[in-house]
Every structure is written in structure tokens, then in C-alpha cells.
């Protein structure tokens, strides 16, 4: 299946099958929700402000879950402003397919740029995270 290796990279398959940030944490300060009405995928994100720990409860495809996982890795300890910047860089990367050295493991998702209907799967966790950070505590 060489034709899909670019999309379903080992790290994506691994993080989908063995998530590290899945489930509702005992403590959190903010939460946000993301829905993809096209396919019924949904994600709920929990943020613990102290050090921006992110957890998620997800119902969706491999791309969305892996994206939520890699996002949780990538935002750990960041300020809200830094997260907003990461999100922008991430969305640019998955839309254009051009990897960005500052994004680290998130670059594993660059393959979605070739699957237009799947970009939304990769960005949904970030929308939910933004909703959490912008919403009331």
C-alpha cells in the first residue's frame, strides 16, 4: 500500500492504537468540543491550565485521533498565544503539505493535504482546543 504510506505513517497508526492522552482527566480547568457534521466525528478536549495539559475524548478516524494525540504532545506547557501560533502553523502545514521544522512530530500529518476531505479530520482537535481556551473557565 505504498500509495497511502504518506498518509498512514507509523506514528499515526501507533498513536491511534495506543493513545497516551485519551480520556477525561481527574482535574481540568477548561473544556472544548469539536464536531464534524459531515461524518459524525466528535472530540472533547480537557485542558489543565497549569502547564497546559491536554486530554481528549474522541470518536473518530485514525487521522483525528492521531492529530489529537500529537497536538497534546505539542502544546504541553505552552501559553495560549503560543498555542494559537502553533495552530496557525499546523493548519498551514496540513493545507499546503509543506512540512515545518518547528512542528516536529505534527509533520507526520502533512499527508492529509492530498486528501482534501480529510484535512478537517486533522484540524478538528485544534478547533476543540481553541474553543476550550477561548471559552469560559
Amino acid at each position: 500500500m505504498s500509495e497511502t504510506a504518506d498518509l498512514y505513517q507509523a506514528i499515526i497508526m501507533d498513536r491511534t492504537k495506543n493513545p497516551r492522552h485519551a480520556g477525561k482527566p481527574p482535574h481540568f480547568n477548561r473544556e472544548g468540543h469539536g464536531d464534524n457534521p459531515m461524518c459524525g466525528d466528535r472530540i472533547h478536549v480537557y485542558v489543565a491550565d497549569d502547564g497546559t495539559q491536554v486530554h481528549h475524548e474522541s470518536r473518530g478516524c485514525a487521522i483525528m485521533i492521531a492529530s489529537a494525540e500529537l497536538m497534546a504532545d505539542a502544546v504541553a506547557g505552552l501559553t495560549a498565544d503560543a498555542i494559537a501560533e502553533r495552530r496557525k502553523a499546523f493548519e498551514a502545514m496540513v493545507t499546503t503539505g509543506t512540512t515545518n521544522p518547528t512542528l516536529g512530530d505534527l509533520n507526520a500529518l502533512s499527508g492529509v493535504s492530498e486528501y482534501r476531505s480529510r484535512i478537517r479530520c486533522a484540524t478538528l482537535p485544534w478547533s476543540a482546543l481553541t474553543a476550550a481556551l477561548e471559552g469560559a473557565k
Binding site: M1, E3, G60, C61, A62, I63, Y115, C121
Partner: peptide, 12 residues
């Protein structure tokens, strides 16, 4: 396998 992933892999 989620339905989306099935569809994408079949599409290829």
C-alpha cells in the same frame, strides 16, 4: 478501522 480511513484507503 474507522469508516473515513476505509474510504480513503479504498479511494487510493
Amino acid at each position: 478501522a474507522h469508516a473515513h480511513d476505509i474510504a480513503t484507503l479504498l479511494d487510493r
